[in-house]
C-alpha cells in the first residue's frame, strides 16, 4: 500500500518485461498519470460475469448465408431447388372438362387461324327468331355471349403475341354474333309490344276476365252467340225507341210551337 491506487497500473506496465518496447518516453509521464486518474469503468461488475451480447442470433445472417449456429433436425434433408427453366418443369394435368376451355375454340392452340375465323355462317335473322320460344332465344343469347368471350380472348392473345393477320376476320365474326344478338333483342321487343297491345285489347273484350278470379278466357259458343245477338238486337230496338222519342221531341215541339203561338 505504499503507492497510490492511481499509480498502480502505470507502475505495472513499466515493470512488465514483455512491454519494455512500448514504454512511453519519460516526458509523457504526467499525462499518463492524469489519464489513469480519469478512467472509470461503465459498470462495477467484472466483464467475465456476463456474455458479450444477449442476442442469440448474433452472427446469423440470411444475406451472407451463414446458416444456423447449431444444426437442427432437418439439416440433413436436402432442400428442393427451384426449376428456373420453365420447359423442365413438370406439366400440370388439366381436366379436359374444365370450364375455362370454353374460352378457346380449340385446345391445341391459343387462337384461331384467320381461315378458321373466317369459316362462319350468316347471322340469325329476326324472321327466323320470331318463331322461337323464349327458352330458345335465351340459350342462343348465352351461346353468343360465350362466342364473344372466345373471340375477345383470342384477339387479345393474338395482339400480345404479335402473331400476324387475323384481326379483320375475328372482327367480322364478332359482327355476325352481334347482329344475332340484336335480332334476339328485336324479336323480344316486338313480342313485348304485341303483348302490351293485346293487354289493352283484353280490357275491352267481354270474353276475357282480367280480374284474377275465375277463368281468364271464357269463349262463347256459336249457338249461344247467335241467340244472344238476336236478344241484343231486340233489346236495342226496345231501348232505342224511347231515345228516338227523346230525339224527336224538339222537332215535335218545334212543329207544335207555331200552333201554340198561333
Amino acid at each position: 500500500m505504499s503507492t497510490s491506487t492511481a499509480l498502480r497500473p502505470v507502475a505495472r506496465q513499466l515493470l512488465r518485461a514483455s512491454r519494455t518496447r512500448n514504454i512511453p518516453p519519460t516526458f509523457l509521464l504526467p499525462s499518463l498519470l492524469s489519464g489513469a486518474q480519469q478512467t472509470s469503468p461503465f459498470s462495477s461488475t467484472s466483464s467475465t460475469y456476463y456474455p458479450r451480447d444477449n442476442n442469440r442470433e448474433r452472427g446469423v445472417s440470411t444475406q451472407r448465408r451463414t446458416g444456423l449456429r447449431q444444426p437442427v433436425s432437418v439439416s440433413k434433408t436436402p432442400l428442393p431447388k427451384p426449376v428456373l427453366n420453365p420447359e423442365k418443369r413438370s406439366k400440370v394435368e388439366v381436366d379436359p372438362d374444365h370450364g375455362l376451355w370454353q374460352f378457346f375454340h380449340s385446345k391445341d392452340k391459343p387462337m384461331n387461324t384467320p381461315e378458321e375465323d373466317h369459316a362462319h355462317g350468316r347471322p340469325w335473322s329476326v324472321e327466323e327468331l320470331r318463331q322461337k320460344s323464349w327458352e330458345d332465344l335465351h340459350s342462343l343469347w348465352w351461346v353468343c355471349c360465350k362466342e364473344r368471350n372466345r373471340i375477345v380472348t383470342e384477339a387479345y392473345e393474338r395482339k400480345r403475341l404479335n402473331a400476324g393477320y387475323g384481326d379483320a376476320e375475328s372482327k367480322e365474326r364478332e359482327a355476325m354474333v352481334k347482329i344475332t344478338m340484336r335480332a334476339i333483342k328485336q324479336a323480344l321487343t316486338e313480342r313485348y309490344y304485341s303483348w302490351s297491345d293485346a293487354e289493352e285489347l283484353a280490357k275491352t273484350d267481354p270474353e276475357i276476365n282480367l280480374s284474377g278470379e275465375g277463368s281468364v278466357y271464357t269463349p262463347k259458343e256459336y249457338a249461344e252467340e247467335d241467340l244472344l245477338e238476336e236478344e241484343e238486337v231486340l233489346g236495342e230496338q226496345e231501348e232505342t225507341s224511347p231515345e228516338k222519342n227523346v230525339l224527336l221531341e224538339p222537332e215535335v215541339k218545334s212543329a207544335e210551337k207555331p200552333v201554340v203561338s198561333a
Binding site: V94, F104, L161, A163
Partner: peptide, 24 residues
Amino acid sequence: EMDQPFVWPEEPKDYDLWDKVTYD
C-alpha cells in the same frame, strides 16, 4: 382462385398460318 388448375394451350411454334412474315 379456382378449385381445379387450368393451363393455357401452348404458344404456336411458327406463325405461318397467320402469315407473320408478310404482316411484319
